[in-house]
């Protein structure tokens, strides 16, 4: 039993969720114009094509925002962090997920370079295993420690 709902996937999104369960982070790539898109849609909102392929995302990006939720009720006092990550692949794709860090968000900054990771949680009334995104501070790249990109 978990209070975490199992995601209600649909015919557009189920390939993305299935890939995630294999610990693959994918995006749609428009066949004619190569524009990337997420969440899943049946048509490119730029060129209008309905032909696409699923491609592996780079898995790197930067923290665009984060929240620290303070849980009410019996869990009062507990906090958890959710980050929103802007992908390096395309700057209008922002993807939420957990963050591999302290539950009060200490150390997070906007622009912090991150890379994709995965986590397994229990979801739904039957406590099924669900793989979700868990972003982590990027291994050293370019600018070195403390490097921040807006």
């Amino acid at each position: 039993m978990s209070t975490r709902p199992y995601p209600v996937t649909d015919l557009d999104s189920s390939p993305w969720w299935e890939a995630l369960q294999r610990r693959e982070f994918v995006l749609q790539s428009c066949a004619p114009c190569r524009r990337l898109r997420w969440p899943a849609r049946a048509m490119c909102n730029d060129c209008g094509s309905d032909e696409w392929t699923w491609v592996s995302a780079s898995g790197v990006g930067a923290v665009a925002s984060w929240t620290v939720t303070h849980r009410p009720g019996p869990a009062g006092g507990e906090t958890f962090v959710v980050v929103l990550v802007r992908l390096d692949d395309q700057d209008d794709i922002l993807v939420p997920g957990y963050f591999d860090g302290p539950p009060d968000g200490a150390g997070l900054t906007i622009g912090l370079p991150v890379e994709v990771g995965f986590d397994e949680v229990e979801a739904g009334d039957d406590g099924r295993r669900l793989t979700v995104l868990r972003w982590r501070r990027a291994a050293l790249r370019g600018g070195g420690p403390g490097s921040v990109r807006e």
């Binding site: 975490r4 995601p7 996937t9 665009a64 925002s65 929240t67 929103l84 939420p96 949680v121 979801a123």
Partner: peptide, 29 residues
Amino acid sequence: NPALSADAQYWLPYLHASAPQQFAMFARM
């Protein structure tokens, strides 16, 4: 309620779908 928007599915697994959480994400930016 996932019936209200298909995109809720990308937030709900992180227990992040209430109105204060959604607006907090925007507010920090």
